[in-house]
């Protein structure tokens, strides 16, 4: 069973991987960083990742529609205990230069953790990376 660094090093073995980080999306803190960071500043990159992850996690449009409920996020919505995990699984951003994969880490506690993998455009295999990152995120906390 891996620790944070082992998981990030495993992610770095994916083809085209340039950098990997585990970020707390509620605060923007980098819990672990391996490899390069976009823009060269690990803290700034983590804050940007957290911002994007928060947007994706909180917008009702991206949430799984619960059966028989008009949607979460209304003023009347009740604080269920199951909201520690956002229903969004991952967020993918691509640009001319590369891909950014954000994968929410499922956990039974309030982890707020999201895996961020930066792939080079030429060597990166987005489909493979998405599958592998999903597996890693699943194993990270749940074992």
């Amino acid at each position: 069973m891996p620790g944070i660094d082992e998981c990030l090093l495993e992610a770095m073995r994916l083809p085209g991987a340039r950098g990997a980080a585990l970020v707390d999306w509620t605060s923007g803190l980098a819990l672990g960083v391996v490899g390069e960071f976009p823009g060269g500043d690990a803290e700034a990159a983590a804050a940007d990742v957290a911002e994007l992850a928060r947007l994706a996690a909180e917008q009702p449009a991206f949430a799984v529609a619960p059966a028989g409920d008009p949607g979460p996020g209304g003023p009347g919505s009740t604080g269920a205990a199951d909201d520690a995990d956002p229903s969004v699984e991952d967020v993918i951003v691509s640009n001319r230069d590369g891909y950014h994969l954000l994968r929410f880490v499922p956990a039974a506690f309030d982890s707020g953790a999201v895996l961020h993998l930066w792939l080079g455009r030429a060597e990166g295999n987005l489909a493979l990376a998405r599958i592998r990152l999903g597996e890693m995120a699943g194993r990270l906390v749940l074992g």
Binding site: M1, P2, G3, I4, E6, C7, L22, D24, L29, L31, A107, F109, D110, S111, G112, A113, R139, L140, V141, L142, G143
Partner: peptide, 12 residues
């Protein structure tokens, strides 16, 4: 517990 779960909780 996985080591990562413990590390994450500890850092938080």
């Amino acid at each position: 517990l996985t080591p990562a779960a413990l590390e994450i909780c500890h850092l938080h």
